[in-house]
Simulated scan of single mutants.
Amino acid sequence: MREKKSSSILHSISAWLIMLPGLILFAFFVWEPLLESIRLSLYTAKGIHLMDFVGLKNYIAVLQHPDFLPAIRNTFLYTFWSLIIGFLIPIIMATFITETVHMKSFFRVGVYFPNIMPGLATVMMWGYLFRPGKTGVFNILLSALGIQPFDWLASPAWTIPLIVLTMTWKSAGSTALIYMAGMGSINPELYEAATIDGATPWKRFLHISLPSIFGLGKTLLILQIISVFQILYEPLVMTNGGPNNASISVMQLVFRYAFEDYNYPMAASLSVIISIILVLLTAVYFKATKGKKPEYSTN
């Protein structure tokens, strides 16, 4: 009995020793900055040096700032459009490539290729495509068709969807590969049986592929929401938050507080507010989807 207990203790110690480097790195790079941000948000500061304790005054100033509500609204619009465009496209790409018989490796490399480009280079490239007047690539194509040039990023209704399209072009390929890996673990006999029964590609996706990637999709969905809430350089470079704050994001507002106004306590306060929003959204999402999973069917 003692030997069994000693063995269990040694096993626990070994497990903790294995996790210790990761826990130290996690505490240093995640928890310490988070706690320091909370602390900074409760003080006034001169540069990065804390001055006077002011409690929730910085939070009140952030909530009352005229750019706060537009930034929150736009960030939720970014999230909405990313779910409409950016969440569905990788699933569609993964399904088509999985159903492809020839040149699968070629298509896998092709869809992943945009992901290896630096993010800033991608944004600048799409900025040239959307450039107003007769010098933008898309406007050149429209002119060739006899259509008047369009001021793409100057329209508040178009700005956010076009920025989301830019983000999707860059990142959809890597997400599609993750879905393809999930679909690759499906027993091929299920597809063969469905094909013999006369199931169309749409029915094979709906009743076989979709249930197999449901859990993966739940995780990637919340990760995408978290990622979209941190959107910064796309609106910063392409529109600088314009026109008239139509594309400003909460992270761009944090950037303005920290690196334009040098008001680090307000930047920290807004960062804490963003963290609270994301925690609440994550909790509500997993509560709402808990235990829900499609079942396999070939009918």
Rank of each mutant, 00 (worst) to 15 (best):
P161I: 02
T98Q: 14
S271F: 09
L50T: 01
T166K: 15
K134D: 02
S12W: 02
M251P: 05
F113M: 01
N187W: 03
T195I: 12
A15H: 07
M125I: 08
L253C: 06
K287H: 00
M183T: 06
S174Y: 15
E3G: 13
G184E: 00
W31Y: 08
M183I: 09
F80K: 08
S249T: 07
L206C: 10
F87I: 00
V62F: 02
V272E: 01
I163N: 07
F138Q: 06
S143T: 13
I226W: 04
L25S: 11
S209M: 09
A258V: 08
L281F: 00
N240G: 15
S269G: 09
T175N: 13
Y257C: 05
G22P: 11
H207T: 00
G119R: 05
L206K: 15
I91G: 13
A176I: 02
K287F: 01
S155Y: 10
A157P: 14
V137R: 14
M117P: 12
Y128P: 05
S8T: 02
D52P: 11
K5V: 08
T44M: 13
I13C: 04
L165Q: 09
R73D: 00
F87N: 09
E260V: 14
F286G: 06
H49Q: 09
T195Y: 15
T75L: 01
M1A: 15
I97G: 15
G215W: 10
F259A: 04
F96Y: 13
L270T: 10
F87M: 12
A154C: 06
G242C: 03
Y128M: 11
L120Q: 09
S7T: 10
R131N: 12
F28Q: 01
R39I: 00
L23F: 11
P156R: 05
Y285K: 02
A121H: 07
I163P: 12
M180F: 11
Y78S: 10
Y78W: 06
G55N: 04
L23N: 02
L278T: 12
F113Y: 07
G146L: 06
V254Q: 03
N115V: 08
T98V: 11
I226G: 08
A61Q: 12
I178W: 10
L281S: 05
S37L: 00
L88E: 05
T44K: 08
S105N: 14
H49N: 07
L77G: 09
K104I: 05
L270D: 04
F255R: 12
L56Y: 03
Y264V: 11
F29S: 04
F107Y: 06
I222R: 09
I97S: 08
A267N: 01
T195H: 15
G198M: 13
L278D: 02
L162G: 14
L281M: 02
N245C: 03
G217H: 00
G22H: 07
L270K: 09
I178V: 15
A181R: 11
L20H: 13
V30D: 03
P33I: 03
I9M: 11
W202R: 14
S143W: 15
R39K: 03
F76T: 04
A15E: 05
T298N: 12
V30Q: 07
I276M: 01
I222D: 04
P265W: 02
V111H: 02
G198N: 14
A283N: 01
V54D: 12
G217P: 06
W202Q: 14
K170L: 09
K290C: 06
I13L: 05
L270I: 08
E36T: 06
L77K: 09
F29Q: 03
F96H: 08
N115C: 13
V250Q: 00
M183K: 10
P294E: 02
L278W: 06
I72H: 00
